[in-house]
Amino acid sequence: MSAYGPAAEEVRTTALRTGTRALDWLHRNHVQGTFADGATAELAEPDSVYKPLAELSLAASLVMRDAAFPAAQRDTAGELLDFAWDQLRGGDLLYERQLRFPAMTDPLETYVHFHRAGYRHERLQELLAHLASLTSYREYEHVPNRRMAVANATRVVGGADPTDWPARTAATWLGSTPEPWTMDWMTAYHVTHTVFHLTDWGAQPHALPPHLRDYLATWLPVWTDVWAEIEEWDLVAELVIVDACMPQPAFEPDAWRRLAAAQHDDGLLPRDGRTGGDGDGRRFEDHYHTAVVATVAASLVLSRLGA
């Protein structure tokens, strides 16, 4: 038993079971996220296959990085990364897209997950290093937490990172610790992503400044409770990740209990309580994101709780 006590033991067991089933579901269904033949750098519909591939790679790369799942799940993650890398033609698609659209940041933000897991594309890496040196590339007008995504990816890929992180953080909604009751659905995702990028997905919990730790420690339980009640499972799982990114996670068992109860027998975790029925023809498209988030949440929680 860990130093966290019996509640954390329950979280460990539930996270392992729920996360394993989510990851296995992703693995069984991942071929649904395959490019049509001849996908080019333009990607007329980037959200259809490209974005899911990037998010699949994120989850798999964190399973590899955290090494907290058993070996079988790490093998599964490895297979998913191989599949996605293959879909991206060994990184060529990202390279071509970055050449064609120098101002776009998604090639970097996709490549970073493969880089984290040891994959390399040298020519792309050269482009990214050059872009990272440009003031322009850092200052394109994204919303503040998107800028942090670019800065974190640059940091992980190993480019020079002149980012003023405190200033970047202060520019986000979370950075000014606003009235917690004004939180809305979209802002909640902005907050979770601010924390993900600031802490590099939980790798640097102490990158969270103390005033944000206090703020999150006070209000995360409320936001989690509010959205768990109305069964917004995708958001609840994201908030669970935020907890796991904190220097002292609360490891509340209740959110995990509810996520586990919402998970279907086949491992599908519906994004919310209104969808995910058996007659749902778009099961992968609609729910892959929640499987990704649940996998990441489980990986981080298991990692933070210790083997």
Partner: peptide, 11 residues
């Protein structure tokens, strides 16, 4: 019944 915020296309 909770009337907590959810995704709204009107946003």
């Amino acid at each position: 019944f909770s009337d907590a915020p959810v995704y709204s296309p009107q946003g």
